[in-house]
Each structure stands twice: as structure tokens, then as C-alpha cells.
Amino acid sequence: MRVEMYNALRERALLLRVMAGAGPGLLLVIVVVTVAASLIPAVSAVAMAMLVGRVADGPNADFLASAAVPLVVFGAALLLGHALEVVQEPLFFLATARIDGAHRAEVARLAVTSPAFATLEREDVRNLVWKARADPGNWTEKTPADGALTQLKLLAHGVSLVSLSVVLVAFSWWVLPLLLVAVVAHTMIGRRNAMRWYDKWLGGTDQGRRAEVWADAIFAPAEGKELRVFGFGGWAVERVTAHVRSMFEPVWAVGVENMRGQWRRFLLVLLPLTNRLRDGRPGRRRRCRVGGRRDRGLRRGLGDVRVRGCRQPRGEGCSRRPEGTGAVARGAAGHPGARRGPHVPGEDQRASARAVRGRRLQLSRQRAEGAGRAGPGDPAR
């Protein structure tokens, strides 16, 4: 395990060294643009949280003024993110051309200036030169520039992950460990699958080179004519097909196996995002309501007394005043959300009962006073 980790870190360090071929000026611009783009998600998340918080407060005198600043910041972050993505493409293209050009020149210099020409005729050496040519024949082949710029993107993703973690801790700290474990496991599984796929691909490069030789012979003017004249055309096609299948069949098998195992990676990401903690656990937010639900007495016309807009977590106080009319609002003064302090289990139900009893007592007194003032023949009596 340690040897594999050491080799992986060594390969990444060697790929980063290759970026020197892009030039110091271009490399500095690419690093600045990439790091700035990696911070955009965190800035967007903070701006969106501020905007939602201002809107959730409800309309007031300075509603537009208070919501304008986070809205402008959020829009500017989105525009800047798109602009940086557009700028990255030509910068990466220029860096790729410079890095791969320097690599090809170095490979050509080593091949030309080598004193052992007989060594270059060996099959294993020719395979190594074919692998190091930095001239992709299809979409599956990559160059040193692709590897180096990918390392830079991975470092930028690390910066983005750290910044988003800081933002997430400020809002829901309990989600962070779950997401970090999911991200690490997801990355390790993806890297293992990719390495298995590329190992199979590299293992069949000699078969691919033989297939190319036969394909060139078939389509060449002189060799192709001789193959058709002497009746070897079908046999040559079979040779090309056999070499191609020998190269790709192991790769296809690994690809099918990786696709069948995608559900594991999907669950790793889905479970932390859909996890809902019940009442009493950290991060649970609820709307403060007298009695926790509508009381039967309140259903009979006394109204619903609650603290509107209160979204304090359980165990924290609420600075908002309960809304209601008459004695119902005054009786709800005992509601734990209407004062600051720890939440007491059962206090919501007791506050609701006190509010109902206070309202009934007030109605009884009003009827008694009205009956005392009315005469014997008064209908009100």
C-alpha cells in the first residue's frame, strides 16, 4: 500500500514538473484563473444564503435595499464563473501545445542522437517510443500536457472542497463529515476503476500497433494492390480484426464491470444528501408553534398563535414576538419561542393550555359583567 501511494505521488510530482514547458508567464495566469474559478462555488453559496435569509425575513421598509446586495453578489459570481470557464479553454489549449511540443522535441532528440541504432529496432523499444510519442490517435489516448493540467485541476478541486467545507460548517456542521467520507470513497473507487481500465489499455498497445501496421499495408497503394492480386485481402482484414479484438476485449470487459458498479458511487453521494435527522438532533429546524400543533381550543375560533418566521433550532430562543389578538397573544407570552432561553420539553403544551384558559376566563368575566349591568327585562340578561 505504501509503495503504491509513493508511486502515485511520484507520478503526480513528475506530471507537475512537465508544466514548466508552458512558460512562467502563461503558467502563472493559468494558476490564478483556475484557483479563482475554484472559489466561485463557495462565494455563490454564501451569496445565496444571504439572499434567502433576507427574503425569509418578509417584506419591510428596506426589503429591496437589503436584498439587493446579496442578489448583485450572487449574479456577479455566476457571471465571473462563466467568464473564467471561457478564458480557461484557450489558455489550456496554448499550454497543451507548448508542453506537448517540448515533449515531442525531446523524444525526437533522444531517438536521433542515440548511438545504439540497433537498440531502436527492438520491439520493446519501439513500443516505448510509440507510447511516448504524445500524438493521440483517438480519444482514449492522452498526452503529458493532459496529465499535467489535470493535476492542476485536481488541486483546484481541493481548494474548492476546502472553501465549500468552511461554508458548510457555518450552516450545517453535521453534514460535513458525511460528505467528506462520501467524497473520499467516491474518488478512491473512481481512481481504482480508471487505473484498471488504463492498465488493460496499455497492456494491449502492442496488439494495437500490429493492427495499425496491417491496416496501413491494406490501404497502401503498392502493398494493397499486391494483397488484392494474390487474394490475401480477406486474410489481411482478418489479421487486423484479430489484433483489434485482442487489444479491446479486455478493455471492454473492465468498462462493463465499471458501469455495473456505478450504483455504489451513486449511493455514496445520495445518502449524505438525503439524510434527514429527526427532532432533537443537530441541525433540525422547525417553525415555532404553540403546542407544536393546532390546539383543539384554538380550532374553535381562538386562532392559531405562533411565532411567525421563527426558524431557530431546537434548544435556542426566538427573538420574534407571537402574533395573535387579545388575550390569546397575551396568553402566549409563556411560549418558549417568545423569549430567549433553553427549550423545556412540554412547555409548548402548557403555554397553549394557559392561553386557552386565559381567553375563556376573560370571556366568562365579560359575560358576567354584561349580565350585571343588564336589567331584569333586558334581552342581554
Rank of each mutant, 00 (worst) to 15 (best):
Val55Asp: 03
Ser319Asp: 05
Gly370Ala: 14
Val69Glu: 11
Ala374Met: 08
Ser165Ile: 00
Leu51Val: 08
Val46Trp: 04
Ala83Asn: 03
Asp135Ala: 10
Val251His: 03
Pro272Tyr: 02
Trp174Gly: 01
Ala253Asn: 08
Val31Asp: 02
Arg2Phe: 04
Val213Glu: 12
Ala145Leu: 04
Ala36Pro: 00
Arg350Met: 01
Ala242Ser: 15
Val167Glu: 08
Trp252Gln: 15
Ser364Met: 12
Ala220Gly: 09
Arg98Cys: 02
Ala351Cys: 08
Pro342Thr: 09
Ala220Lys: 09
Arg289Gly: 01
Asp304Gln: 13
Gln362Ser: 07
Thr274Tyr: 12
Arg12Gly: 11
Thr96Arg: 15
Met195Ile: 00
Val35Thr: 11
Arg265Val: 15
Ala351Trp: 00
Arg2Tyr: 11
Asp199Arg: 07
Gly25Cys: 05
Leu15Arg: 15
Pro136Ser: 09
Ala37Thr: 04
Thr119Val: 04
Leu16Met: 10
Arg278Ser: 10
Arg330Phe: 00
Asp124Ile: 01
Val162Phe: 07
Thr325Lys: 13
Thr140His: 02
Gly292Pro: 00
Ala380Arg: 15
Ala327Met: 07
Leu298Glu: 10
Arg264Tyr: 12
Glu121Ile: 06
Arg2Pro: 03
Pro144Cys: 11
Arg265Asn: 13
Val33Asn: 11
Arg293Thr: 03
Gly147Gln: 02
Ala242Gln: 13
Gly208Tyr: 01
Pro345Phe: 05
Thr325Tyr: 13
Asp57Thr: 11
Val129Lys: 02
Gly324Val: 03
Pro59Met: 13
Val244Met: 13
Ala374Thr: 08
Leu179Tyr: 03
Ala111Arg: 14
Arg381Ala: 05
Asp348Gln: 06
Leu14Ala: 15
Gly337Arg: 05
Pro345Arg: 12
Leu227Met: 15
Phe92Val: 04
Arg285Val: 11
Gly346Tyr: 04
Gly280Tyr: 12
Gly331Gln: 01
Gln262His: 11
Val112Asn: 09
Gly75Phe: 04
Phe248Leu: 11
Ala371Met: 13
Ala134Gly: 11
Leu155Thr: 06
Leu14Arg: 15
Gly297Ile: 01
Asp206Leu: 09
Val229Asp: 11
Glu4Ile: 04
Arg196Asp: 12
Thr140Asp: 08
Val169Ala: 07
Ser172Trp: 03
Ala182Asp: 00
Ile218Glu: 10
Val18His: 14
Arg122Gln: 14
Ala148Pro: 03
Pro376Glu: 10
Ser114Glu: 10
Ala327Asp: 05
